[in-house]
Design a protein around this nucleic acid. Sequence first.
DNA 1: CTACTTTCATTAGCGCTACGAACGTTTGGA
DNA 2: TCCAAACGTTCGTAGCGCTAATGAAAGTAG
Lengths: 154, 154
Amino acid sequence: MSPTPNPTPARLRTIPSRLLAGAALAADRLVSERLAAEGAHKWHFAVLVALAEAGAASQAELSRRTGIYRSDMVAVLNELADAECIRREPDPADRRRNVITLTPTGRHRLERLDTLITDAQRELLAPLTPDQQDELTRLLAVLTEHHHPPHGAQ
Amino acid sequence: MSPTPNPTPARLRTIPSRLLAGAALAADRLVSERLAAEGAHKWHFAVLVALAEAGAASQAELSRRTGIYRSDMVAVLNELADAECIRREPDPADRRRNVITLTPTGRHRLERLDTLITDAQRELLAPLTPDQQDELTRLLAVLTEHHHPPHGAQ
DNA sequence: CTACTTTCATTAGCGCTACGAACGTTTGGA
DNA sequence: TCCAAACGTTCGTAGCGCTAATGAAAGTAG
């Protein structure tokens, strides 16, 4: 006679904010595990994508593109620079700025991380049909866009 | 001539794990703001629901029902007990356990918090049609259930 | 030209959340 | 009887989002 084998009340299982938190946590774990296997980090990928897709930029600009705070961006760029994935040089046109440039090494690194990320997404969405996967992605995009993205992400 | 007014690359905007993180953050903010206005916390609500829906239980059992770690549960129950929302008494049948009981005060408190939570969900899902809201909730439920709920949440 | 405001990179720090370690107590099973 | 497990509790940790403050440089107004 088990005393109370009652895991997770129905009410809690139907609250969107709770479901979002749980799903986000699982998703983050999947991504982080994959990336950690290659000594990489979530943020590295975001920065590399931002550089590959929209070209060289200042740190502040990268901060806006990725949603990473520019105070955290410093360390991320340090690591990417140590791995020679980017170059960080003062902007001659505006001496406040650094110009961050993607190196060939960085481009290769991005390719590798991209497959890891893609794999993780696949595993994350595995229990859904392809149509459901697309629908979920669309709905989430609407939500995040509506609720002022990360906002300024200064 | 703005240098690079390019917010958020398309690739980043279509990665489910990133969308989930963003949506979860927005959702959590909405909920936390509402609850904070009444000095309440996310976790208080979860515990009260778990008690109301499945009856009195030990702290470990509540931990399983809510996904809150049992090390964190202690403080939550302290606060709920201070507010006289619950009673915490040693279990005569098993002296390791405490029996946590919902008080009438706690039941009223739950009613209040429930409306706050419901309001927050409404605001969160506002940009979606009712059908989309249901679909999103269903899809998220599938995901969280598949990826070993919170898991043990010991 | 001067004075004010803004932007930038960088450092340091805070609060919250999920999570693990350890401990003493108690219980149940071999 | 001995061992393993569960319980409540305390303490500590790591990561993330975010703020504040600083010195340098640029833009802007008077």
